[in-house]
Nucleic acid binder design. Structure first.
Length: 487
RNA sequence: GGCCCGAUGGUCAAGGGGUCAAGACAUCGCCCUUUCACGGCGAAGACACGGGUUCGAUUCCCGUUCGGGUCACCA
C-alpha cells in the first residue's frame, strides 16, 4: 500500500485462556511485521465486562513471552499511542461516537438489547437483523430522551443501497451489498464500545497498517470499511487468516475444546514446537520443504503470499512429531533439567543416574508428560511374570533366563566398577566363558532389572540408572521368583 | 435460510494449461538393533463432480455438491 513501516497488533480479550487460534493470529501478526522490519503491538480488548476474567492479562503476557513474541508497544511497556487497554480509552470512543451522531451518521437506539439466543432452534432460525426502528426517530426527540436518562446504544447508519468492497491480501476482493449490512452498534448502553467500534478507532489511532485476524471476521469487514469511511480515515490492509479446525472438522474454538496454549504446555509440549506447528497451519514457505524452523528463521521466511485460504485441521500427530524434533534438538543440559524435574519427585530422594536417564530418554520422549510413565519401572518394582523373560529373537525363555541370571549375579555382585565399560566388560567376559549370546544375556538382564520388556535404553543403561545396590536387589528378587516358580 | 469464503492423498501442504502431481505427519513393509524407540530404505495413498475455453485442463470460467464462516448492546 505505502512505504510506511508495517505495524500489526495482537488484540486479545482477557477471557482467561489463550486459544491456539488466537496464538496463531498473534504469531502471524508478529511475523508479518517482523519480516518487514515492522512493529508488533499488544492491545487488550476488555470491552466485554461480563466475560472479563481476573488474571487473564497475565496469561497473555506469559504466553507471548514463552513463545518469544516480543511486542514493541503494549500495556506493560507503554508506547506512543497508549493506553493499550480499551477500558482505559472509553472517553475516546464516546467522543467519536458522539461526533458521528452529531454529523448524522449514527443515532441513539432505545430498543432493548437482542443478544443472541443460544437456544435458537435449528432450521427455524429466521434471524433477521435489527429493523432500524430508531433510525427514523427525530434527532431532537432522541436527544431529549437521552438527556432524561433513558438508556440507549449508538448505532451507525449504514447506506441502504450500493455496495461495499475491499481487497483482502489473502482472499482477494470481496464485495457485499450494503443492504446486507446491519446498523451496527458502536456504543453499548453501558457506555462501552463494541469490538467493532473500538477496534476501528484503535487500529487507526495506533497507526496499524495491517489488520491480521481470523477469517471469522471476513464477513463483518465491510462494516468496518463503512466506519473508516464515516470517520474519513484511510482503510488499512486486511489479512484474514484461514480458520483452524479440530479433528472433527469443526472450528476449533473456546466453546469446543481445551486447546489452549496453557493446556498444550501442561500436556508436555515445548513452546517452540507449538509455535513451529501453528506457523505451518495455513501457511507454507513455498519451494522450501523443510518444516522445522525457529522463530528467528520464520521471521525472515514468512510472506503473506504463502497464506492459504482453506481452513486447516490441527493435527496432534504432527505436533507430536514436531515436539520430538525439538526435544531431540534440545541442548543436553536443558534436557537434563527437564528430566530432573520429572524424575526427582518420582525417585523420591533415592539416588539415580540422572545423566544416563536423560541420555536414554532424549531420543525417545514424545512429550514431557510421558516421562513419569516411562520411568515408573525405575522407581517401582513391578510385578514379575515368566512371560517377561520370553524373547523369540534371543531364544530366551524363563528357564534359560534363570540360568543366565544365576551365572551373572555373582559376577555383577563382584563388580565394583558399576559403569558402562565395567558392566559391558563383565557381560562380554561372561558371554565368552559361558558361551552365551549377547542378546540372551541382555534380554535376561533387562527383564530381571526392569520387569518390563520395553525400556528406554538397554539392560546396561538400566543397571546404571538404577545403581549397583538396587540392581543387585532386583536381580535377587528376579532369581528367587524364577527359581520358586520353576516346575 | 440469507450473505461471504473455500475445495490437491486420512492430515498439513508444494505446484500450476502439457509434470511419472513435490515434501512432511500418520499408516504399512524391510534393514539396523540386546526389545521398544531412534535411524536408514521403501510402499500404498490425491487434483470433489458436471459443463465450457483450449490442440491440451488438476490448473482459467460457470454451475453443482460438499465443507467452513457469519448473521449479538461477544470478540
Amino acid at each position: 500500500m505505502t512505504d510506511r513501516m508495517i505495524k500489526t497488533r495482537f488484540a486479545p480479550s482477557p477471557t482467561g485462556i489463550l486459544h491456539i487460534g488466537n496464538l496463531r493470529s498473534a504469531l502471524y501478526e508478529y511475523l508479518i511485521a517482523k519480516s518487514k522490519g515492522g512493529a508488533f503491538i499488544l492491545r487488550i480488548e476488555d470491552t466485554d465486562r461480563e466475560r472479563y476474567v481476573e488474571g487473564a492479562v497475565e496469561v497473555i503476557y506469559s504466553t507471548l513471552e514463552a513463545c518469544g513474541l516480543q511486542h514493541d508497544e503494549g500495556p506493560d511497556i507503554g508506547g506512543p499511542h497508549g493506553p493499550y487497554i480499551q477500558s482505559e480509552r472509553l472517553a475516546l470512543y464516546q467522543a467519536y461516537a458522539e461526533e458521528l451522531v452529531s454529523r448524522g451518521l449514527a443515532y441513539p437506539c432505545f430498543c432493548p438489547p437482542q443478544k443472541s439466543e443460544l437456544t435458537s432452534e435449528e432450521g427455524e432460525a429466521e434471524a433477521f437483523g435489527y429493523d432500524r426502528r430508531c433510525r427514523a426517530l427525530d434527532p431532537h426527540e432522541a436527544r431529549e430522551r437521552r438527556a432524561a436518562g433513558e438508556a440507549s446504544a449508538i448505532r451507525q447508519k449504514m447506506p441502504l443501497e450500493g455496495e461495499t468492497s475491499f481487497t483482502d491480501q489473502v482472499y482477494g476482493t470481496i464485495t457485499v451489498q450494503n443492504k446486507e449490512l446491519e446498523d451496527q452498534i458502536l456504543l453499548k448502553s453501558d457506555g462501552y464500545p463494541t469490538y467493532n467500534f473500538a477496534n476501528v478507532i484503535d487500529d487507526h489511532l495506533m497507526e496499524i497498517t495491517h489488520i491480521v485476524r481470523g477469517s471469522e471476521y471476513l464477513s463483518s469487514t465491510p462494516k468496518y470499511c463503512q466506519l473508516y469511511q464515516a470517520l474519513g480515515w484511510e482503510i488499512p490492509e486486511f489479512v484474514h487468516l484461514p480458520l483452524i479446525l479440530g479433528e472433527d472438522g469443526r472450528k476449533l474454538s473456546k466453546r469446543h475444546g481445551s486447546t489452549s496454549f496453557h493446556d498444550l504446555i501442561q500436556e508436555g509440549y515445548l513452546p517452540e514446537a507449538i509455535v513451529n506447528m501453528i506457523a505451518f497451519l495455513g501457511w507454507a514457505p513455498g519451494e522450501e520443504t523443510r518444516e522445522i524452523f525457529s522463530l528467528k528463521e520464520l521471521e525472515s521466511l514468512f510472506h503473506i503470499e504463502g497464506i492459504n485460504k482453506a481452513p486447516a485441521v490441527f493435527s496432534y500427530d504432527k505436533l507430536n512429531w514436531m515436539n520430538e524434533q525439538y526435544i531431540r534438538a534440545l541442548p543436553f543440559e536443558a534436557w537434563r533439567g527437564r528430566v530432573k524435574e520429572a524424575a526427582d519427585s518420582a525417585f523420591g530422594g533415592r539416588p539415580y543416574d540422572l545423566d544416563m536417564l536423560a541420555r536414554v530418554l532424549q531420543p525417545r520422549v514424545t512429550k514431557l508428560s510421558d516421562i513419569p510413565g516411562m520411568i515408573r519401572f525405575l522407581t517401582d518394582r513391578l510385578p514379575l511374570s515368566r512371560e517377561l523373560f520370553h524373547n523369540k529373537r534371543a531364544r530366551l525363555d524363563a528357564d534359560r533366563a534363570a540360568f543366565v541370571l544365576e551365572s551373572l549375579y555373582p559376577r555383577l555382585r563382584g563388580l565394583s566398577d558399576w559403569t558402562e565399560t565395567g558392566l559391558l566388560e563383565t557381560l562380554e567376559k561372561a558371554g565368552l566363558e559361558l558361551d552365551l549370546k549377547k542378546g540372551l544375556l541382555m534380554g535376561a538382564l533387562r527383564a530381571g532389572l526392569a520387569a518390563q520388556q520395553v525400556t528406554p535404553g538397554g539392560a546396561v543403561e538400566t543397571a546404571i540408572i538404577l545403581g549397583r545396590s538396587e540392581s543387585l536387589e532386583r536381580l535377587e528378587i528376579a532369581l528367587s521368583f524364577l527359581n520358586e516358580d520353576k516346575t
